[in-house]
Protein backbone atom coordinates (compact mmCIF):
# COMPACT_ATOMS: atom_id res chain seq x y z
CA UNK A 1 0.00 0.00 0.00
CA UNK A 2 2.95 2.28 0.71
CA UNK A 3 3.93 2.03 -2.90
CA UNK A 4 0.43 2.89 -4.06
CA UNK A 5 0.10 5.90 -1.80
CA UNK A 6 3.54 7.40 -1.68
CA UNK A 7 6.16 5.47 -3.56
CA UNK A 8 4.90 6.84 -6.82
CA UNK A 9 6.56 10.21 -6.72
CA UNK A 10 9.49 10.20 -9.11
CA UNK A 11 11.77 13.17 -8.48
CA UNK A 12 12.76 15.00 -11.62
CA UNK A 13 13.51 18.38 -13.06
CA UNK A 14 11.02 18.80 -15.88
CA UNK A 15 8.69 21.74 -16.52
CA UNK A 16 5.89 19.70 -14.98
CA UNK A 17 7.91 18.86 -11.86
CA UNK A 18 8.73 22.51 -11.34
CA UNK A 19 5.15 23.67 -11.67
CA UNK A 20 3.36 25.06 -8.64
CA UNK A 21 1.52 22.14 -6.99
CA UNK A 22 -1.57 24.35 -6.76
CA UNK A 23 -1.58 24.70 -10.54
CA UNK A 24 -1.14 20.97 -11.02
CA UNK A 25 -3.92 20.15 -8.60
CA UNK A 26 -6.34 22.62 -10.19
CA UNK A 27 -5.50 21.51 -13.70
CA UNK A 28 -5.95 17.84 -12.81
CA UNK A 29 -9.45 18.54 -11.49
CA UNK A 30 -10.19 20.78 -14.45
CA UNK A 31 -9.13 18.02 -16.81
CA UNK A 32 -11.32 15.40 -15.15
CA UNK A 33 -14.30 17.73 -15.49
CA UNK A 34 -13.75 18.57 -19.16
CA UNK A 35 -13.35 14.89 -20.05
CA UNK A 36 -17.11 14.60 -19.60
CA UNK A 37 -17.65 17.20 -22.31
CA UNK A 38 -15.99 15.01 -24.92
CA UNK A 39 -18.58 13.32 -27.12
CA UNK A 40 -16.90 12.31 -30.39
CA UNK A 41 -13.66 10.92 -31.78
CA UNK A 42 -12.24 14.30 -32.51
CA UNK A 43 -12.69 15.55 -28.96
CA UNK A 44 -11.20 12.39 -27.42
CA UNK A 45 -8.27 12.69 -29.81
CA UNK A 46 -7.73 16.24 -28.61
CA UNK A 47 -7.72 15.16 -24.96
CA UNK A 48 -5.30 12.33 -25.72
CA UNK A 49 -3.03 14.80 -27.46
CA UNK A 50 -3.10 17.03 -24.37
CA UNK A 51 -2.40 14.10 -22.04
CA UNK A 52 0.44 12.73 -24.11
CA UNK A 53 1.87 16.22 -24.50
CA UNK A 54 1.84 16.65 -20.71
CA UNK A 55 3.47 13.27 -20.18
CA UNK A 56 6.20 14.13 -22.67
CA UNK A 57 6.78 17.45 -20.95
CA UNK A 58 7.16 15.63 -17.61
CA UNK A 59 9.84 13.33 -19.05
CA UNK A 60 8.73 10.33 -17.02
CA UNK A 61 8.90 6.77 -18.26
CA UNK A 62 5.67 5.72 -19.97
CA UNK A 63 5.79 2.34 -18.18
CA UNK A 64 4.63 4.08 -14.97
CA UNK A 65 1.37 4.96 -16.66
CA UNK A 66 0.71 1.44 -17.86
CA UNK A 67 1.38 0.31 -14.28
CA UNK A 68 -1.16 2.86 -13.11
CA UNK A 69 -3.85 1.30 -15.29
CA UNK A 70 -3.09 -2.31 -14.42
CA UNK A 71 -4.60 -2.52 -10.90
CA UNK A 72 -7.84 -1.07 -12.24
CA UNK A 73 -8.07 -3.16 -15.38
CA UNK A 74 -10.91 -5.41 -14.11
CA UNK A 75 -13.01 -2.46 -13.04
CA UNK A 76 -12.43 -0.85 -16.41
CA UNK A 77 -13.28 -3.99 -18.38
CA UNK A 78 -16.40 -4.58 -16.32
CA UNK A 79 -17.67 -1.05 -16.88
CA UNK A 80 -16.82 -1.17 -20.56
CA UNK A 81 -18.65 -4.48 -21.01
CA UNK A 82 -21.69 -3.11 -19.21
CA UNK A 83 -21.70 -0.19 -21.61
CA UNK A 84 -21.26 -2.41 -24.62
CA UNK A 85 -23.99 -4.91 -23.82
CA UNK A 86 -26.60 -2.72 -22.20
CA UNK A 87 -26.72 0.37 -24.36
CA UNK A 88 -28.68 0.18 -27.53
CA UNK A 89 -29.10 2.18 -30.70
CA UNK A 90 -27.83 2.02 -34.23
CA UNK A 91 -27.28 -1.27 -36.00
CA UNK A 92 -27.84 -4.27 -33.73
CA UNK A 93 -25.34 -7.03 -34.47
CA UNK A 94 -26.42 -9.59 -31.90
CA UNK A 95 -29.17 -10.01 -29.32
CA UNK A 96 -29.69 -12.48 -26.45
CA UNK A 97 -32.20 -11.78 -23.66
CA UNK A 98 -31.41 -8.39 -22.11
CA UNK A 99 -28.00 -8.25 -23.83
CA UNK A 100 -27.47 -6.73 -27.20
CA UNK A 101 -24.45 -5.76 -29.15
CA UNK A 102 -25.17 -2.58 -31.00
CA UNK A 103 -23.20 0.00 -32.89
CA UNK A 104 -23.76 2.62 -30.19
CA UNK A 105 -22.90 0.13 -27.50
CA UNK A 106 -19.51 -0.46 -29.05
CA UNK A 107 -18.88 3.25 -29.48
CA UNK A 108 -19.94 3.99 -25.90
CA UNK A 109 -17.75 1.19 -24.60
CA UNK A 110 -14.77 2.65 -26.43
CA UNK A 111 -15.52 6.14 -25.04
CA UNK A 112 -15.78 4.85 -21.48
CA UNK A 113 -12.48 3.09 -21.92
CA UNK A 114 -10.88 6.31 -23.18
CA UNK A 115 -12.26 8.26 -20.21
CA UNK A 116 -10.81 5.80 -17.73
CA UNK A 117 -7.43 5.82 -19.38
CA UNK A 118 -7.35 9.63 -19.60
CA UNK A 119 -8.30 10.09 -15.95
CA UNK A 120 -5.78 7.51 -14.77
CA UNK A 121 -3.00 8.92 -16.91
CA UNK A 122 -3.56 12.47 -15.78
CA UNK A 123 -3.87 11.65 -12.07
CA UNK A 124 -0.83 9.39 -12.33
CA UNK A 125 1.01 12.30 -13.87
CA UNK A 126 0.03 14.45 -10.87
CA UNK A 127 1.27 11.95 -8.28
CA UNK A 128 4.40 11.07 -10.25
CA UNK A 129 5.56 14.66 -10.53
CA UNK A 130 4.32 16.07 -7.22
CA UNK A 131 5.57 14.95 -3.80
CA UNK A 132 2.74 14.06 -1.39
CA UNK A 133 3.80 16.92 0.82
CA UNK A 134 3.48 19.38 -2.05
CA UNK A 135 -0.05 18.13 -2.61
CA UNK A 136 -0.74 18.74 1.09
CA UNK A 137 0.71 22.25 0.72
CA UNK A 138 -1.44 22.91 -2.31
CA UNK A 139 -4.55 21.74 -0.48
CA UNK A 140 -3.70 24.09 2.40
CA UNK A 141 -3.40 27.04 0.04
CA UNK A 142 -6.54 26.18 -1.86
CA UNK A 143 -8.50 25.70 1.37
CA UNK A 144 -7.43 29.10 2.72
CA UNK A 145 -10.77 30.80 1.96
CA UNK A 146 -12.38 28.27 4.32
CA UNK A 147 -10.57 29.96 7.20
CA UNK A 148 -13.29 32.59 7.05
CA UNK A 149 -15.84 30.03 8.16
CA UNK A 150 -13.51 28.91 10.99
CA UNK A 151 -12.16 25.77 9.34
CA UNK A 152 -8.77 25.05 11.01
CA UNK A 153 -6.91 24.99 7.71
CA UNK A 154 -3.36 25.11 9.17
CA UNK A 155 -4.11 22.30 11.58
CA UNK A 156 -5.69 20.14 8.87
CA UNK A 157 -2.69 20.57 6.65
CA UNK A 158 -0.24 19.84 9.49
CA UNK A 159 -2.30 16.77 10.32
CA UNK A 160 -2.13 15.66 6.72
CA UNK A 161 1.62 16.14 6.49
CA UNK A 162 2.28 14.34 9.79
CA UNK A 163 0.05 11.49 8.65
CA UNK A 164 1.97 11.26 5.37
CA UNK A 165 5.25 11.35 7.26
CA UNK A 166 4.22 8.49 9.56
CA UNK A 167 2.78 6.13 6.93
CA UNK A 168 6.14 4.53 6.10
CA UNK A 169 7.12 4.40 9.78
CA UNK A 170 3.94 2.54 10.68
CA UNK A 171 4.37 0.35 7.62
CA UNK A 172 7.80 -0.71 8.88
CA UNK A 173 6.37 -1.33 12.28
CA UNK A 174 3.56 -3.47 10.87
CA UNK A 175 6.10 -5.61 9.06
CA UNK A 176 8.12 -6.00 12.28
CA UNK A 177 5.10 -6.99 14.34
CA UNK A 178 3.99 -9.45 11.63
CA UNK A 179 7.39 -11.09 11.72
CA UNK A 180 7.37 -11.22 15.49
CA UNK A 181 3.90 -12.80 15.54
CA UNK A 182 4.84 -15.21 12.75
CA UNK A 183 7.76 -16.42 14.82
CA UNK A 184 5.19 -17.15 17.54
CA UNK A 185 3.19 -19.27 15.11
CA UNK A 186 0.55 -16.84 13.86
CA UNK A 187 -0.31 -17.42 10.20
CA UNK A 188 -1.25 -14.39 8.16
CA UNK A 189 -3.25 -14.80 4.97
CA UNK A 190 -3.99 -18.47 5.59
CA UNK A 191 -6.92 -20.51 6.79
CA UNK A 192 -10.61 -19.65 7.02
CA UNK A 193 -11.92 -16.13 7.28
CA UNK A 194 -12.38 -16.52 11.03
CA UNK A 195 -8.78 -17.64 11.42
CA UNK A 196 -7.58 -14.73 9.35
CA UNK A 197 -9.54 -12.27 11.44
CA UNK A 198 -8.08 -13.86 14.56
CA UNK A 199 -4.61 -13.47 13.11
CA UNK A 200 -5.16 -9.75 12.59
CA UNK A 201 -5.93 -9.04 16.25
CA UNK A 202 -2.39 -9.68 17.54
CA UNK A 203 -1.24 -7.38 14.74
CA UNK A 204 -3.62 -4.49 15.32
CA UNK A 205 -3.45 -4.34 19.11
CA UNK A 206 0.31 -3.71 19.38
CA UNK A 207 0.09 -1.39 16.38
CA UNK A 208 -2.58 0.76 18.05
CA UNK A 209 -0.79 0.81 21.39
CA UNK A 210 2.45 1.91 19.77
CA UNK A 211 0.69 4.50 17.59
CA UNK A 212 -0.81 6.13 20.66
CA UNK A 213 2.56 6.16 22.38
CA UNK A 214 4.09 7.73 19.31
CA UNK A 215 1.34 10.32 19.18
CA UNK A 216 1.93 11.29 22.79
CA UNK A 217 5.70 11.49 22.30
CA UNK A 218 5.25 13.55 19.17
CA UNK A 219 2.89 15.97 20.88
CA UNK A 220 5.39 16.50 23.69
CA UNK A 221 8.25 16.97 21.25
CA UNK A 222 6.24 19.49 19.22
CA UNK A 223 5.37 21.48 22.31
CA UNK A 224 8.98 21.42 23.46
CA UNK A 225 9.91 22.90 20.07
CA UNK A 226 7.53 25.77 20.58
CA UNK A 227 4.48 24.64 18.62
CA UNK A 228 1.38 26.45 19.82
CA UNK A 229 -1.15 26.13 17.05
CA UNK A 230 -1.04 27.10 13.42
CA UNK A 231 -1.56 30.85 13.82
CA UNK A 232 1.40 33.16 13.50
CA UNK A 233 3.84 30.62 12.16
CA UNK A 234 6.10 31.43 9.24
CA UNK A 235 6.56 28.98 6.37
CA UNK A 236 9.76 27.31 5.29
CA UNK A 237 8.35 25.71 2.17
CA UNK A 238 6.83 28.19 -0.25
CA UNK A 239 5.62 27.78 -3.79
CA UNK A 240 5.76 30.51 -6.32
CA UNK A 241 3.32 30.83 -9.18
CA UNK A 242 5.55 31.15 -12.22
CA UNK A 243 5.08 31.92 -15.88
CA UNK A 244 5.05 28.18 -16.58
CA UNK A 245 1.96 27.80 -14.42
CA UNK A 246 0.11 30.57 -16.22
CA UNK A 247 1.07 29.06 -19.57
CA UNK A 248 -0.07 25.63 -18.41
CA UNK A 249 -3.45 27.01 -17.37
CA UNK A 250 -3.75 28.86 -20.68
CA UNK A 251 -3.11 25.65 -22.63
CA UNK A 252 -5.81 23.83 -20.70
CA UNK A 253 -8.32 26.64 -21.23
CA UNK A 254 -7.49 26.69 -24.97
CA UNK A 255 -8.13 22.95 -25.07
CA UNK A 256 -11.49 23.53 -23.40
CA UNK A 257 -12.46 26.09 -26.03
CA UNK A 258 -11.45 23.83 -28.91
CA UNK A 259 -13.27 20.99 -27.20
CA UNK A 260 -16.47 23.02 -27.12
CA UNK A 261 -16.17 23.55 -30.87
CA UNK A 262 -15.42 19.90 -31.57
CA UNK A 263 -18.53 18.82 -29.66
CA UNK A 264 -20.66 20.21 -32.48
CA UNK A 265 -18.49 19.02 -35.35
Amino acid sequence: MGKVLLGRYVPGDSIVHRMDPRAKLILSFFFIVIIFLANNWQSYALLFALTIGSILAAKVNFAFFIKGVRPLIWLILFTVLLQIFFSSGGTVFWRWGPFNLSYYGLINGAYVFCRFVLIIFMSTLLTLTTAPLEIADALEKLMMPLKKIKVPVYEISLMLSIALRFVPTLMDETAKIMNAQRSRGVNFGEGSIMQQIKAVVPLLVPLFVSSFNRAEDLATAMEARGYRGGEGRTKYRVHYWQTGDTVGCAVFVAVLIILLFLRHW
Binding site: L133, I162, A221, R225
Partner: peptide, 30 residues
Amino acid sequence: MVFQNPDNQFVGANVEDDVAFGLENAAIPR
Protein backbone atom coordinates in the same frame (compact mmCIF):
# COMPACT_ATOMS: atom_id res chain seq x y z
CA MET B 1 15.17 19.05 24.16
CA VAL B 2 16.06 15.76 22.47
CA PHE B 3 13.99 12.75 23.45
CA GLN B 4 14.66 9.04 23.43
CA ASN B 5 12.86 7.75 20.36
CA PRO B 6 14.34 9.23 17.15
CA ASP B 7 11.19 8.53 15.15
CA ASN B 8 8.70 10.06 17.55
CA GLN B 9 10.19 13.54 17.47
CA PHE B 10 10.66 13.85 13.75
CA VAL B 11 7.80 16.15 12.72
CA GLY B 12 8.82 17.27 9.25
CA ALA B 13 8.36 15.31 6.05
CA ASN B 14 12.07 15.48 5.39
CA VAL B 15 15.29 16.59 7.07
CA GLU B 16 15.23 20.30 6.25
CA ASP B 17 11.52 20.58 7.00
CA ASP B 18 12.07 19.05 10.39
CA VAL B 19 14.83 21.48 11.24
CA ALA B 20 12.61 24.33 10.08
CA PHE B 21 9.69 23.23 12.29
CA GLY B 22 10.95 25.00 15.41
CA LEU B 23 11.91 28.09 13.40
CA GLU B 24 8.43 28.25 11.88
CA ASN B 25 6.95 28.08 15.37
CA ALA B 26 9.18 30.94 16.45
CA ALA B 27 7.96 32.94 13.42
CA ILE B 28 11.50 33.47 12.09
CA PRO B 29 11.35 35.18 8.67
CA ARG B 30 11.85 32.75 5.80
